[in-house]
Amino acid sequence: METQKLNKLKLFLTLFFSTLKISAFTFGGGYVIVPLLQKKFVEGLGWIDEEEMLDLVAIAQSTPGPLAINASLLIGYRMAGIAGALVTVLGTVLPPFVIMSVVSVFYIAFRDNVIVSAVLKGMQAAVAAVILDVVITMAHNVIKDKRIFPVLIMIAAFAAAAVFDINVVFIIIICGVLGALFMRPGKGEEK
């Protein structure tokens, strides 16, 4: 009983500090958090497999509100129920909350600081590399199964998002419906 309590505490602490650290580095929009979460919880801790991670991101996108919050929350929920979800939300909200509270007081000095903007410019290029790195790994996993349908969906969804700038809500609905129609297990397409 004691060790169980201890393990639970350890789980919550790991969830809290992992999301805290990750959130402090999600510069440039919600998607940036996905590769970081993937690296930590799929590859590092091995708590969630990649397929389930993608499912959780899909659910996060189907939920209104900031993607970064939703994705962390779902990982917390998956690992430790509603209490886990609250812990990861807290961990994710805290860094922007604290930083923004401080910045709001002297924001003009911050905005116009040359050193701050030079460092951030350098970081932005690395953020792009971090996302591309994970995309390469994930896309490879989609392609290596050698099934045509998922690859077609991936290409079409990329064109819809990147070229035609179509709202993600529509992309999600259409791909979900296509999946339900043509990609059910036993339909020949799926294992």
Partner: peptide, 17 residues
């Protein structure tokens, strides 16, 4: 089926971002 359809789409949207 729904999730099989969504997974490649999620990869694509991360790529687009």
């Amino acid at each position: 089926g729904v999730m099989n359809g969504l997974r490649p789409a999620v990869v694509a949207m991360i790529a687009s971002a």
